[in-house]
Simulated assay, not measured.
Amino acid sequence: MKQNKNLRCRMLRGSGCCLLLLALYSAGAYALESDGDQPIIIDSNTATYDDVKATSTYTGNVISIQGSIRVNSDKLVVYFIDGEADKMVFTGNLAKFKQTPNEGDQDITGEALTGEYYPKKNLLILIDKATVWQGSGAYSSDLIEYDLKTSLVKAGEKESAGKRVHVVLQPKAKEQPAAKGDGK
């Protein structure tokens, strides 16, 4: 356990440099298939590790990146099982995420007051004032589950008929006919 703690401390000290290198590298690499195999890089104003509870808490302009997945939040708590990140809970005044689903595809973005990310399951759950966008479409609900591997979005709660899901599907822009010459 002590070795894992020392490794995390070393990662935190160099995270600004690692974050910059990762940002430069990931600009050209969108391999969604490998997002789950990439390291999770966290940059924040403060970091605390609790060895007894096996948690790390990061506060202040928190940026976490794994492959093409990026989350910005005010606070992030990482829960470890056997030295691996099992659950990440991010909160903020609308914490935001972004992912590139496939090379050339439009990014999927979202926001919520609370989010839970399960790296091993490729699952992101957005809770309270949650919205997910891709292109001109948007899903809003108090609960949205997003499967990062399959890009499947599930909005709303099955048990609650009182809470509604709001979806906006924009029509594609119509192509304008080519301007006709003046006949000369």
Rank of each mutant, 00 (worst) to 15 (best):
K2Q: 00
Q3R: 12
K5E: 00
N6R: 07
C17H: 11
C18K: 15
L19C: 06
L20W: 11
L20F: 04
A23K: 15
A23C: 10
A23N: 13
A27C: 06
A27Y: 06
G28F: 08
G28T: 04
G36S: 09
G36I: 03
Q38L: 03
Q38H: 01
I41N: 12
D43V: 09
D50I: 01
D51S: 14
D51Y: 02
S56W: 02
S56Q: 15
Q66T: 02
R70Y: 06
V71S: 05
S73M: 07
L76Q: 04
V77W: 08
V78K: 09
Y79T: 15
I81T: 08
D82A: 00
F90Q: 08
T91V: 11
A95L: 12
A95C: 10
A95Y: 10
K96W: 01
F97S: 08
K98N: 04
N102D: 03
D105E: 00
D105T: 05
D107F: 03
I108W: 05
A112R: 03
G115R: 10
G115H: 10
Y117W: 07
Y118P: 05
P119M: 00
K120T: 07
L126W: 00
K129V: 01
T131V: 14
W133T: 09
G135D: 02
S136K: 13
G137P: 03
A138G: 06
I144K: 08
E145A: 04
S151K: 11
S151M: 13
K158G: 06
G162K: 13
H166G: 03
V168K: 14
K172T: 09
P177E: 06
A179D: 10
G181N: 12
D182W: 10
G183T: 15
